[in-house]
Amino acid sequence: MRTVWWEKGKVILINQKKLPEEVVYVECEDYHRVAESIKTLEIRGAPAIGVAAAMALALAVHKSCATSRYALDKELTEAADVIKATRPTARNLFWAVERILRKAESIEGDVSEAVEGIVKEALSMAEEDVVANKNMGTHGATLLEDGDVVGTICNAGRLATAGEYGTALGVIKVAHEQGKKVSVIALETRPVLQGARLTAFELKQDGIDVKVICDGAIGYMFYKGMIDKFICGADRILVTDDCYVINKVGTHTVSIVAKQYDIPFYVAAPLSTFDFQHSLEEAEIEERDSQEVTNIGGRRIVPHGVSVLNPAFDITPPEFVSAIITERGVIRPPFKMNLKNIIS
């Protein structure tokens, strides 16, 4: 299953807000519609919105009526600004925009050659994502043993990527394909319930045993020895600060409790998630709409007049991370130094 793809000059994506009740596809005929999908979580997950961002820019030039490179480049820059304004935290989105802009700059031909080159680059990025996730799963599966029960938070499966495998769930899926009997305990992941809705949906489709727990039950699961390993994805990893991990809010809490009970805590992320430029102080944590917390199923549960804090992500220091799984291999502490080794 692909999460987002290019078809006859349109960007098609699965509307993840409708899952698991129904599978609905969104047809995006212009980049503004892709931007809306990213902003409203119709598509979410750092690698997925990176691919969607690249395809949005491809769509911008594909639909352009520009007759000169100057005009086309101007429209591309305007589209890039719109896409970058959708969600501020995930590194993959900005990485994808930067890569497409570099590609456009490198093309010396006319308008048609530029459009062809940009569309081809975006499609290549989608295919690269699938391959990277399969490789990540292969490397990460070496960390799982037959019979392991693996905990996870949010959704870091194929729905969070271009499709097929995913990051954290990709590790579990490859282990399953290798014949290891692994099962999963998924945190429901308030307030949007990506774990209960999306992770459980994916794993059920793949025939992998999964149980859902409320977020607050994770300490009890560790205490009772019901989880052997924990794997999550990442939205941004800050390399300059020895790889602080920004991921779904609640991740840091899980990492603290995992360390208390000596449970390995792994992060699975492609290299496009690594931020080599910004410091911890510069990281922007997205604050989402308060209604995600105040309302459930269209009904308000929080008394009127009570304010809400709704950070979408938190930050896990590297000392709580056992290893980071990438498409190039597994990185152990010290992360910054060992990351350089696998890149080189």
Rank of each mutant, 00 (worst) to 15 (best):
V97A: 04
V131R: 06
R87L: 02
S106I: 11
K103D: 03
A90F: 03
S106H: 15
S124T: 08
V131Q: 08
D81G: 10
K120N: 05
T89V: 07
N135K: 11
K103H: 05
E116M: 07
T86Y: 01
I118V: 05
M125D: 08
A132G: 05
A126E: 13
E98I: 04
D129C: 03
P88N: 10
V131L: 06
L101K: 00
S112Q: 15
K103T: 08
T89N: 06
S112N: 15
K103N: 10
V111F: 07
E113M: 14
E127W: 09
V115N: 05
F94M: 09
A122F: 00
W95I: 13
R91G: 09
K103S: 09
S112P: 13
E113G: 15
E121S: 04
V111Y: 11
N92Q: 02
N92L: 03
K134T: 13
K134P: 08
E108C: 14
A96S: 10
R99H: 14
E105T: 12
R91T: 13
I83A: 11
N133S: 11
V111E: 10
V97D: 01
K134D: 09
A104S: 15
K120R: 09
A104G: 15
M136H: 05
R102M: 03
V97Y: 00
V119F: 01
R87H: 05
E98H: 10
N92T: 04
R102S: 10
R91Y: 03
A90W: 02
A114Y: 14
I83S: 02
T89S: 10
I118Y: 00
D81P: 03
V131T: 07
K120S: 08
V97N: 03
